[in-house]
Nucleic acid binder design. Structure first.
Lengths: 319, 319
DNA sequence: GCAGTAAATGTTATCGGTATCAAGATACCG
DNA sequence: CGGTATCTTGATACCGATAACATTTACTGC
């Protein structure tokens, strides 16, 4: 910048102002300097600017990424969140620093202006850990009573309830829940499910399954059959599990949806093409991501931001 | 840091060295200073360090993200690339700055030490654009003759050839290719397919389909049927297309694989659970990501790095 | 006892921008 | 014509770290 100043015959600060489109500089001077900058391929040193402004215009997004078949944030679906976040932050002139839990100690995270945490961890441990950084922070996941921070998530409790009511309307009496309720989100779905069924005095059966795969879903239904447990409705907390459950049910010679109703969760694109087309609870990840981004930005600007729960909708197809 | 220095009764530079575990400071002093730093919650200012060291320890990853049903880098599968990249960079103490094409003008990208470009764009336009930044750059995608930069990609040509040989071994005579060859990678697959078939004097039929979805695959096969075109093998350049193709084929009353062989691409997890279990070409995205990361790191360190082509393997299941 | 060496710490300059305040030039007012 | 407001530009300091070189201290061997 000093060189550029000399070339233009002005001072550094004038160059700085010219490049920043400050109204303080004479339009002619500005044009001249900007032209010179382009011509010489001048590029601003972002680190220097960050230092001076005490702002990095960067938000760190921390994902939980375990190399396992367990439900990870790097699985296809929650990732759309990232798309929403990225879109919104970019529009506001911010950058996204992508980090994993392990890598979050990497220096650059500290330089971020804000933090978005995807998945608060089994026991909020992640939340506590990053709270120490003392940065504006927004968390994606299930809300809990004791939240000191801003949480954005979809209404898992409602998701469970909607499915329960659907089953009730169909006259189902022996519903089964398949999934792993040790994930806070899943736990909420289960609770919503249970509570809404309780209104009619129905108690669902919990089939705990840790893996969110087709095979796991098939296995769950086979296991029900072996144990000679009757059931006429299945709420799988993920579409893959639902697909597996449907397949196993059909294999057992029972009809879906005549004998057994099945509803999945996430409404993944493939679900509509599944045979039979899968009914599922849809949550708008994209919108969730955008909301997360807007909330951090607000916090960064010193404005208040509140937790928020996104609605979900039941997509009824053929199961 | 100045405050910390005063607290410890030493100079700033000693603090800097102590926190950096420099062997130049007395171990006792170091301990004392580090303890003080922890106690007072001191955090290094990364921007200042970046400025001084002229290094950000950050690599920008630029993805192509269009909000469309077209094959985007934000689709589930290529995203595993990001996992590999992230893992490797994190291990090396680097951070990942995630950017989209549009957002790549965002300041922070310039501060990166290196660039990873996922998808070089229809006509290498993206490559040229980011070349101007004059940063160490590595590109994921298909190699072309005129590459001035480092390209890492899986061997799409081999992928096509492997499928062709598979069909030949099965005695197939009328193969069809479904996909959109305007993507460089797909174009390579098609070429490998064509060339390997040519050895036996077989010419495949190209069914151009722009969307990589189940519906699109079904549509392709129906269209073949309507036009009364005979076929006994289908190579779909993506698993979803393959699934759709299989479904439509079965709907037409023909058997898979007795009448028609079908092979997909990507070997997505769901493929194995599909009915019938899908044969597919597998590429190791994770490994690709790690390789990309290692190459940029090498370039950043001033070491040479060469383009590389990852092997693929045909997973034969039941189709 | 003293030169010589190693260990520990300090002084100063610097990375490349921007905020603050000051100042010169020009226009406008009564 | 002095005084004030506006426009444009500049000098200086500063953001918070580290590199290079300087200095002090302790210890060694003869």
């Amino acid at each position: 910048m000093a060189d550029l100043a000399q070339l233009a015959g002005v001072s550094k600060i004038t160059v700085s102002r010219a490049l920043g489109d400050s109204p303080l500089v004479n339009p002619e001077t500005r044009e001249r300097i900007q032209a010179l900058a382009r011509e010489h391929g001048y590029k601003l040193n972002i680190s220097a600017r960050n230092l001076r402004l005490r702002r990095s215009h960067t938000v760190a997004v921390i994902v939980e990424m375990k190399p396992s078949t367990d439900r990870t944030m790097f699985d296809p679906y929650p990732l759309v969140l990232l798309g929403g976040i990225s879109q919104e932050l970019t529009a506001a002139g911010y950058s996204v620093l992508l980090t994993t839990r392990q890598g979050a100690s990497a220096a650059a995270v500290q330089a971020a202006d804000g933090l978005i945490l995807l998945g608060q961890g089994a026991h909020q441990d992640a939340v506590r850990r990053f709270d120490k950084l003392n940065l504006p922070m927004v968390v994606w996941g299930a809300q809990s009573a004791s939240d000191a921070h801003v949480v954005v998530g979809s209404d898992n409790r409602l998701g469970g309830a909607v499915v329960a009511r659907h089953f009730i309307a169909l006259g189902r009496r022996r519903p089964v829940f398949i999934g792993n309720p040790s994930h806070p989100e899943i736990f909420e779905r289960l609770n919503g499910f249970i509570d809404a069924l309780a209104v009619r005095g129905i108690k669902p059966l919990l089939m705990r399954r840790d893996e969110f795969t087709v095979d796991s879903g098939m296995d769950a239904v086979r296991s029900l059959h072996e144990r000679k447990v009757g059931f006429d409705a299945i709420f799988a907390c993920n579409d893959l599990l639902a697909m597996g459950a449907i397949r196993a049910t059909l294999d057992l010679g029972r009809s879906v949806p005549a004998d057994v109703s099945v509803v999945g969760y996430d409404d993944m694109p493939l679900g509509a093409s599944f045979l039979p087309p899968l009914s599922s609870v849809r949550q708008d990840w994209q919108e969730g991501g955008m909301l997360l981004a807007r909330k951090v930005l607000a916090l960064i600007e010193g404005e208040p931001a509140s937790s928020e729960c996104l609605p979900v909708s039941l997509i009824v197809r053929s199961t």
